[in-house]
Design a protein around this nucleic acid. Structure first.
Lengths: 169, 169
DNA sequence: AGTTTAATTCATTTTGAATTGAACAAATTT
DNA sequence: AAATTTGTTCAATTCAAAATGAATTAAACT
């Protein structure tokens, strides 16, 4: 991704924006979100006034395609909301500050999904162990049990995390 | 990744192994671990007897390079231990069943790292807001505050997770 | 209606990570 | 010590995800 293009804004503003963008790009890396999406969110988050499509494109030096695609994703997950000034045709975007929702969505779409898929698999495994050669059965049964333990423990952890993140705001 | 090569083992054994491998490959996807590494761990985990390098290579149909590389990683994070039968030259591998350690390592290397990097960035941002144009300052200050909140909340969550996962074995 | 501006779509390209495979090293056997 | 077997390393390849940009649609203005 090319460096930020700065136009003629105060240097501090640009620097602030860059720093925010970097923050989000970094964080996104951890959870496997594309850089461009994180950068778009970052630049919107870093702007006091709602940002237009064109502004985002210009500030980040991204292609129209990436901006469109990124904004679509961000709207879908509710990370960004459109602030239509009916007077104008251009769409303006502000961050949806309920970051809790973001995390919720993430947990749901990734962790939750994986957990229930995993549940099915573990159940399947439990059935299969029964058909194993007697010599190996007890060992393998132990292994599958481990899997079950971890699965249920993780499952139990999820609501805890949810609750915790819900606490303030 | 090519399908499992089965050699002449009982069909149930192969099926069991495949299922376990799939379980781990799936889970790995969630946390961004390479398939091959997950598959190697899976096949070791699914085997009652320690597995040799050659066995892993054959069962998964991976290249020597991948197996070597994968085993290296798995050893480094303590997911797998070498069960040397001094009589033989071939290295044999068993799963290190302390999966807790695995998760610990993961949390440490990824989450922890990101959290402290993020901490620095947030501190930096806090300083920068001061230099913003007065008109925008209060808005931006609010935003940075949000970031701080989330950062500290996540930081607080981590030990909770650790404790929880430590509970039983 | 025709022109301009704004944004989306999607086939192609780019990029970066994962995997391969061939060359190499180390230990073992004959 | 030559040949063989076992595993490592790393440059080259492959592959999938991400980004691009040109074609297209949609809306607004003349």
């Amino acid at each position: 991704m090319p460096a930020l293009r700065t136009r003629e804004r105060p240097a501090e503003l640009a620097a602030f924006e860059t720093a925010v963008v970097e923050f989000f790009v970094d964080a996104a890396e951890l959870v496997g979100v594309p850089k461009s999406v994180a950068a778009i969110y970052g630049s919107i988050f870093a702007s006091a006034a709602p940002l237009s499509f064109a502004e985002i494109e210009a500030r980040l030096g991204l292609s129209k395609g990436s901006v469109s695609q990124g904004l679509k994703i961000l709207r879908e997950v509710g990370a960004v909301k459109e602030v239509s000034t009916k007077a104008d045709r251009t769409e303006l975007f502000s961050p949806d500050l309920e970051m809790r929702k973001l995390i919720e969505r993430f947990l749901e779409s990734r962790v939750q999904r994986q957990l229930s898929a995993g549940g099915d698999r573990v159940a399947d495994l439990r059935r299969r162990v029964a058909a194993m050669p007697p010599a190996e059965q007890s060992t393998l049964q132990g292994r599958v049990k481990k899997l079950e333990q971890w699965h249920s423990r993780t499952r139990a952890l999820l609501p805890l995390v949810r609750t915790f993140l819900k606490l303030g705001s």
